[in-house]
Design a protein around this nucleic acid. Structure first.
Lengths: 229, 229
DNA sequence: GCGCAGGCTAAGGAACCGTTAAGGATCGCC
DNA sequence: GGCGATCCTTAACGGTTCCTTAGCCTGCGC
């Protein structure tokens, strides 16, 4: 899963923790001193460092500062000190999380994954692809065969809703509540009209459907045209 | 300084917490129910959500799932339950951090900053370049084609917010909470007017947009003009 | 062939947006 | 404390786009 570096001087904690983390699929390097730990961090470039604060050679805060100075590596600080001021201080010094001993390997693992997840989550592309259709809700752009298609607000919302359920039949009622935000009432005809406009802009018609298929008596389905895989 | 959404039904906790967070420079919106909270998250796009697990209308885990489904927003879960299994479960469900009540505003603030730091890490106080536009948050200077553009405070904040999300559509509501720091209320018209001034100073207009594109019915998008790479 | 669901066009009105102008608030500077 | 300058908000007007309703037509299913 991830490449971890454990800096912890107490063998009674270190050995079982390394075992447990390896069992959970991580690659674990370890060190019992701060200086060696920083060295390893520099050479191996782990994804995350688990740092004990009570090290013999250097103050934990100082280690944190050194780690931060040489890389943007994620750091989870683990210590026996459960003190408000200490927690705030360590977090502000650059730690990503703070864990009070004693803690289980399970929780450490969960926190490791949470911290690493956040680092990669920032730039998610939510573009939905259906055949030659690309729908990007972030920019609200739609491309068909790489050419931009200009859609009105309702048209886009409707297409987006259908695209997230590609292959499934969606009722007009559902579209009215999801796109038009009117739970009850509203006319199915409205949907029909917008659907017609949408088809036109996608270069198709009800007679010659490519993406938008009406299912008579039920609703509409967005699906990949035959022979376009 | 971040834009936070606090979802918490207990007034005795909510009110002082909002106060404390605001005093620390955050813009805070709040909700006492899960459903309303998800709505606000969708509309305002806060940087981070502080989520109480004991809500009356929906299970916290379910709220977490809904938030994650619609955005990559950071989430810190706060609850009275200090149970190993629960903590691991919530973190694996997508939470970025887990905080056991009672907690101090100071620690929450520190954890908020830690989580957001991990998410952005490089982008803070760094000059942003979009096409021929250079935006420096440090000096609050904007240059277009290397010539300085004088902007009013609101104009700069608005441009900066848009620039950090270049290519993405930003709603006027979001700008009102982010730039104007008013979670609710405020008029969209205000944004329109400032936008118009900003366009003028950037040597463009709504009719002939280069960087600032309005997306009708949704908001505005800052993007690189075609043919300027 | 009849009834009904759906397709499409047209038209009026509503919603939205851009811009300018004016009044008020704030701030710095004398 | 007064003065000027800057900035922000609100209001108003005009233009444009978009949405809904209505109406007519097609074609499917029985």
């Amino acid at each position: 899963m991830a490449r971890l570096l454990l800096i912890e001087d107490d063998v009674a904690i270190r050995t079982p923790l390394i075992r447990a983390l390896r069992e959970r699929g991580h690659a674990v390097a370890s060190s019992s001193t701060a200086m060696e730990g920083v060295q390893i961090a520099l050479n191996d470039r782990p994804d995350l460092v688990v740092l004990d604060l009570g090290l013999p050679d250097l103050d934990g805060r100082e280690v944190l500062r050194m780690l931060r100075a040489v890389s943007a590596v994620a750091v989870i600080v683990a210590t026996a000190v459960d003190d408000e001021t200490e927690i705030v201080g360590v977090l502000d010094a650059g730690a990503d999380d703070y864990l009070v001993k004693p803690y289980s390997a399970g929780q450490l693992d969960a926190r490791v994954r949470a911290v690493l997840r956040r680092g990669t989550l920032a730039a998610v592309d939510q573009t939905i692809v259906v055949g030659q259709l690309r729908i990007d809700p972030g920019t609200r752009e739609v491309r068909l065969n790489d050419t931009l298609v200009e859609l009105a607000p309702r048209e886009f919302d409707m297409l987006h809703h259908l695209a997230t359920r590609a292959g499934q039949v969606v009722t007009k009622r559902e579209l009215l509540t999801a796109v038009w935000r009117i739970p009850h009432g509203g006319s199915d005809k409205t949907v029909d009209v917008h659907l017609s406009w949408l088809r036109r802009k996608l270069g198709e018609s009800a007679m010659e459907p490519r993406y938008l298929h009406t299912v008579r008596g039920v609703g509409v389905r967005l699906s990949v045209p035959a022979g376009s895989w």
